[in-house]
Amino acid sequence: MTLHVILKFPVDYTIAGGTTDTITEHQELCEAKNRLIWGHSSNKSTSLVSEVNRNRLKAQISNGENTYSFFLANNKGKRELYVGKMNTIYRKGEILTGSPLIDYIPSYYASSVGTATDKNNILVDVSTFFRIDEKYLINITLESTGTKVGTVENRTSVFLVNIDEELEKLLIDLLTNLESNFQYQVEQVEVPATVTVVDQPRNKPPKTTVGGTSSYKRDAKTAKTAIVSAQYLCEIDPSHKDFISRITKENYVEAHHLIPMEFQYDFPQSIDVEANIVSLCASCHKKLHHATFTDIQPLVEKLYDDRVDRLDDCGISISKTDLLEYYK
């Protein structure tokens, strides 16, 4: 079976002058550079992953096998699970001071990598970094014993693991389907139950690459804020209530950019703002993407009338006619 790695760590990491959020530091770097090198430290003097297993992981990657590094975070007693598709793995001392690879390591410890003060036993190089439901820990087993990782209770911070077909299919879908990945991340991200949205211009988002496809970055937290503001209701018809989400425990809805993000280049300001994001039931969302223009037109016109003033407040100027052109 294909070998993968899982790393355990606390979210809050002590640095000079206080603490930093490990997840945020790594996630933002990966989003900015489409690549991340995660250094994992331990009090142990060993490499944590033997040379034999490092070579095995590298061989899998070279042969085109999807190989993953899972990151199991302890966030104030709550478990959070993240995953990255691996490019390679490095032993301690393999990345030298001044190496261009340092650019892919978070700044709060990048300067120590390759020096005598480097505490990282291993470093994993990944091309993606995103959160998945921690329930999938039951789909990850220790290679040595077959024990489900979610049931293992010891202080070891690195495990060599295998994953089952269900999790493999999920990861392939999230890596190859940008829309599926985005909606999944929106479900996972947490925002307060009560939010206040201030509609104002924001800078254009950067472009990011996922699964080899480049697109303007959509912020899952902004989308979730729009959904919470809509009280998890469909903004085309509030009576549309399909089912209760297992993750949010609320009516399941999806985030839809009224002005599609692929047209961000037409606007000087960001269109990834709450004013441009509507909460829709799955059926209405699919209709806007797949129905005939005759069916789409009245829905878009309604949403435009509801949002035009808010869009103006965000510095986004568009006529109803021009918006409809995007849906033809």
Rank of each mutant, 00 (worst) to 15 (best):
I6L: 11
I6S: 10
F9A: 00
Y13Q: 04
T19G: 05
T22E: 03
T22N: 10
E25N: 12
W38Q: 06
E51Y: 09
N55A: 10
S62C: 05
N63K: 14
F70L: 11
F71G: 07
N75V: 06
V83M: 00
M86Y: 02
K92F: 06
G98R: 14
P100W: 13
L101H: 02
I105Q: 09
P106W: 05
A110R: 14
N120Q: 09
S127D: 14
S127N: 12
F129M: 07
F130V: 03
R131F: 01
N139M: 01
T145Q: 04
G146H: 06
T151W: 01
T156S: 15
D164E: 11
L170D: 14
L170P: 11
L171R: 02
N177F: 10
L178P: 04
E179I: 07
S180D: 08
E190L: 11
P192R: 11
T194Y: 06
K204W: 00
G211Q: 13
G212E: 13
T213Y: 15
K224M: 10
T225S: 03
S229G: 02
Q231E: 08
D237A: 01
H240P: 05
K241R: 06
A255L: 03
M261S: 09
S283W: 12
C284G: 07
K287N: 09
H290M: 01
T292N: 08
F293E: 06
D295T: 13
I296D: 06
Y304L: 12
L311V: 05
C314L: 12
I316V: 13
Y326P: 00
Y326W: 03
